[in-house]
């Protein structure tokens, strides 16, 4: 699924990385704790979260995540958007909740990313 398809399905607004919307994501991970996101190690993962701060973008950078969707209508601050632009990360915002956003993407074929277990 491309990031453009994600934007369309979630009726989302793009705040950074308009030029990367053709990039593909093959898995997704939803959480509000970045400690949990850091246990995901798959390529081309999309991150959905309600945690709106620069640490979300830093975490995305470490994980090579190309797209972050902020849910529940939350709008990130300037610092967060700036950091995303510097690192070529797409930021989108949607009014849907984390549950509904994940459900829409899953029912359209975007599977969940697996995590590392002990």
């Amino acid at each position: 699924m491309t990031l453009e398809e994600v934007r369309h399905l979630l009726d989302a607004e793009v705040l950074s990385g308009h030029e990367y919307m053709k990039k593909e994501v093959s898995k997704a991970f939803s959480c509000d704790l970045m400690s949990d996101a850091l246990t995901s190690v798959e390529d081309r993962t999309l991150l959905l979260t309600g945690l709106v701060n620069p640490h979300t973008v830093r975490t995305a950078e470490m994980l090579d995540i190309s797209g972050v969707v902020f849910v529940r209508g939350k709008v990130p601050d300037e610092d967060t958007i700036k950091l995303a632009k510097e690192n070529g990360i797409v930021i989108m915002i949607t009014k849907y909740t984390l549950y509904v956003s994940s459900g829409i993407l899953y029912s359209n074929g975007l599977e969940g990313a697996s995590i590392l277990h002990n």
């Binding site: 704790l33 400690s35 949990d36 590392l116």
Partner: peptide, 18 residues
């Protein structure tokens, strides 16, 4: 710290795994 998205107690085990 938890409000910033950290403190899930996964840090050290995650470092070891990586």
């Amino acid at each position: 710290v938890r409000e910033l998205g950290f403190g899930a107690g996964m840090g050290l085990p995650n470092i070891k795994r990586c």
